[in-house]
């Protein structure tokens, strides 16, 4: 074997090795979206209870519509800001974006079509949302290989089961409690991890 050619091929193998080591293939998730939705849902839940206490039942829909619209606007802002900064798009970040779009579209179909058309009973809304949140969190945990998110997903599924055995009057309260370990805690943990990786 010609030694010059052999060296060329060996050098190229080193190029491949070095590029594989340098290329960032992991998705970086700042957790901002979890934090945003977490606080918005908590705010919506507290306001719902206040409106129920005041017996303003017909206005409850407005709280959710306004706060969820704020959530969508905030999410678009976060995604746009991220896209601007993003130098490399990994396959896992594409998978994550598509997963959360699927969860978001599912939420919208159920809330804005299934409920008004009365094909989905209002009593099951929180249960369905908790199940979808569980799918989102658990799969995100799998993609990012982070158990805290997988546990967050399990918490949502446990919350859904608990709701199935309790009166629907308590569902929003159970949902609000599940938001803390299921959204906010992993959201802030992801945010800390992201900030540390940016400073490294």
């Amino acid at each position: 074997m010609n030694s010059t050619k052999q060296n060329e091929v060996n050098d190229n193998l080193n190029v491949i090795k070095s590029m594989i080591e340098k290329t960032r293939t992991d998705a970086e998730e700042s957790g901002s979206i979890f934090i945003l939705w977490g606080w918005l849902v908590i705010a919506a839940t507290i306001l719902t209870y206040f409106f129920v206490y005041k017996e303003w039942f017909d206005r409850i829909g407005y709280i959710w519509f306004i706060l969820m619209s704020l959530g969508v606007i905030g999410m678009i802002y976060i995604v746009k800001k991220r896209t601007k900064k993003e130098k490399v798009k990994s396959y896992s970040s594409v998978a994550l974006t598509n997963l959360w779009i699927s969860c978001g579209v599912s939420f919208l179909i159920i809330s804005f079509l299934g409920i008004p058309l009365k094909v989905v009973p209002l009593e099951s809304l929180n249960i369905i949302m908790a199940v979808i949140a569980g799918i989102g969190l658990f799969t995100t945990g799998g993609i990012l290989e982070w158990n805290m998110l997988r546990i967050g997903g399990l918490i949502w599924w446990v919350a859904a089961i608990i709701m199935m055995f309790t009166h629907w009057y308590f569902h929003t309260l159970i949902f609000a409690i599940a938001i803390i370990p299921g959204y906010l805690v992993p959201g802030y943990a992801l945010n800390r991890k992201y900030k540390n990786s940016q400073n490294a």
Partner: peptide, 13 residues
């Protein structure tokens, strides 16, 4: 080769 090695492992860069 370096460019292709990077691009084969990501969606885009």
């Amino acid at each position: 080769l370096a460019i292709l090695t990077v691009l084969i492992s990501v969606k885009s860069a």
